[in-house]
């Protein structure tokens, strides 16, 4: 409860800062929106020449693409500050600040920033889903909406956990932003059906860096109703396991941490 109250204060604090820098927020959001618009133009050009991409229609591809943005956006919105741990916070000795506060360090790092730029991606995500869903004949049951929420939570955990783990590396090495970047970039693979990739890539994005569970697998379940246990169960398991591992590495890292400050 205490943490929920604190989070409200952090966000309120952040919104005040935001009001002062309205242009910053607007430009960041426009940039993210633009990135998505060009990606969609690319898909549009492809589908102007072919009726379906290995069995998936334009609408279905747009749905998978839009779905992939749910977890990405949520993670971006709430935990963007984790990037700074690997890029700057530890190297500049700023991490000491978090150690002196009477709240959980990981929570504090994450809550400190609230990245509203992500609303640009969120807008694309909502537009894509709103555009594609009506024209798709998707199975709908009473449990569909609760399942969406479960998937959104655990898929976001996959993103966040990978960021926590790679950020924690900097407790030992002082900087790890480039490692976070390298792993994070694999999320782009999840925007398309995994069947377009070769066996090696499929194995990696399913079992090693399981970004396929943030988008394609759950999205294909919602599209077809097939393989619920693998598609939804896999997302829950991957999210849980990675998060547990991330917490473990973070705490290991904390005990190994030596300040870089002077």
């Amino acid at each position: 409860m205490r943490y929920i109250r604190l989070h409200k204060i952090f966000i309120a604090q952040y919104l005040k800062k935001l009001m002062e820098y309205k242009a910053d927020f607007l430009l960041g959001a426009i940039g993210l929106l633009l990135t998505q618009v060009f990606q969609l133009a690319f898909l549009g050009i492809i589908f102007s020449q072919i009726p379906a991409l290995i069995g998936w229609s334009f609408q279905e591809i747009l749905f998978i693409y839009g779905f992939s943005l749910i977890a990405k956006t949520l993670d971006h919105l709430f935990t963007d500050n984790l990037w700074m741990v690997g890029y700057r916070i530890i190297r500049k000795g700023e991490f000491d600040k978090y150690l002196t506060r009477p709240i959980n360090t990981l929570y504090h790092v994450i809550a400190e920033n609230f990245c509203v730029d992500a609303l640009g991606e969120m807008l694309t995500c909502i537009l894509l889903l709103a555009y594609s869903i009506p024209s798709l004949d998707m199975p709908f049951h009473w449990y569909t909406i609760p399942l969406w929420i479960v998937v959104a939570v655990f898929a976001t955990l996959i993103y966040t956990s990978l960021k926590i783990m790679t950020a924690a590396i900097s407790f030992w090495t002082k900087a790890s932003g480039h490692i976070t970047h390298m792993l994070y970039m694999t999320n782009d693979f999840s925007k398309y059906p995994v069947s377009i990739y070769n066996k090696f890539v499929q194995t990696v994005i399913t079992y090693v860096i399981p970004f396929a569970f943030t988008a394609y697998f759950p999205a294909s379940y919602f599209l077809t109703g097939n393989n619920p246990w693998f598609c939804i169960g896999g997302t829950v398991i991957a999210g849980t396991v990675l998060f547990a591992l991330a917490l473990f590495i973070w705490h290991k890292g904390l005990s190994a941490y030596e300040s870089a400050g002077s």
Partner: peptide
């Protein structure tokens, strides 16, 4: 002049 480096560079 725009002061926002991240946003403008992304654009």
């Amino acid at each position: 002049f725009f002061k926002n480096l991240w946003g403008t560079s992304l654009i």
